[in-house]
Simulated assay, not measured.
Amino acid sequence: MDIFLIRHTTPAITYGTCYGFADLDLAPTFTAEATRVQEILPGKNFTVFASPLQRCSKLAHFLFGGTFQTDERLKEVNFGDWEMKPWDNIPETTAQDWMADYLHRPMPNGESYTQLYNRSIAAFREIIASGQDTAIVTHGGVIRSILAYASNTPIEASYKIRVEYGRVAHLHLNGKGLEVKGVNL
């Protein structure tokens, strides 16, 4: 079974803005970035899942037409009260308190990284249980979580996994388990 994790293309947002659950549109580079992703994917039939946020569902529609399912658990981390605020406007002590234990401490009215990880992996396990070749169009945090899970990387080290906009990670599932075949393709 092949699984392709596809990160949405560049969002239309000012650099330095905190976002996760916000339903952002995509930058004008969407078509060029989406075409590049399309050229990477093998020409086979996939079962397709996507985050319901438009930056993912638009890419899923571009790549696979209307044949995909959305799953709320594939959304990016919920930054709560920090959503759509410039990082520079978040009080430094508040941000430092969160960073000191981002794994377990949720953002104000948001969620922790562990909560994102747990919901992402729960969705991923259900998705791969079908045994079908699968494409998942989602966000950086979800992809990092799945890649950490697949490679037995400790959750606290998963933020070091680089996941770029409009890029693909390829996993292969066989009788021995999950194998990471490539990242940022």
Rank of each mutant, 00 (worst) to 15 (best):
V77P: 01
R119F: 01
G175M: 01
R162D: 12
A60V: 06
T70M: 05
T70C: 11
R73E: 01
H172L: 00
Y113K: 14
L147T: 06
T35M: 09
Y102P: 03
P42R: 03
A122G: 08
Q38H: 07
P91I: 15
F30W: 04
A135C: 14
I6L: 08
M107K: 14
K181M: 07
I127N: 00
Y149G: 03
Q54D: 04
Q132L: 11
D81E: 15
S145W: 00
L63Y: 12
T138K: 02
Q115N: 09
H8N: 13
D25Q: 09
L63Q: 10
E164I: 02
T134I: 09
L185Q: 06
E76F: 05
E126V: 05
L5F: 02
W87R: 06
G166C: 04
V180P: 00
K181E: 01
H170T: 01
T35L: 12
S112T: 12
F46E: 02
T70K: 07
T153V: 15
F79M: 13
V37G: 04
G182A: 13
L5Q: 02
P108A: 15
I3Y: 01
P52V: 12
L185F: 10
N184R: 02
G80A: 10
N109V: 09
G175L: 01
A150T: 02
L116A: 13
Q54E: 08
A129S: 15
D81W: 08
R125G: 03
Q132V: 14
L59K: 11
V37P: 04
E164N: 11
I161E: 06
L24W: 07
R167S: 09
W87T: 05
A60G: 07
P91Q: 13
T67K: 15
P28I: 03
A95V: 11
L63R: 12
G177N: 00
T138I: 07
Q115C: 10
F68M: 09
D23W: 08
A169Y: 05
I127D: 00
K75V: 05
V142R: 02
R55S: 08
V48D: 04
I161G: 03
N118W: 02
K75R: 15
M107I: 10
E92L: 14
A157L: 14
A27N: 14
K85F: 10
H172Q: 01
M84L: 15
Q96E: 15
G65V: 13
V183P: 01
C18P: 04
L41C: 05
S51V: 11
A123Y: 04
A135T: 06
I143N: 06
G16Q: 08
L147G: 04
P106L: 15
T17E: 07
P91R: 13
S57V: 11
T9E: 08
G182Q: 06
A34H: 04
T114E: 13
T70G: 03
L41K: 07
I90Y: 11
E164W: 05
M1V: 05
L171T: 01
D133K: 08
A50I: 03
A22F: 04
E92V: 15
Q54R: 15
E111P: 06
D97W: 10
L178Y: 00
N184S: 03
E39N: 12
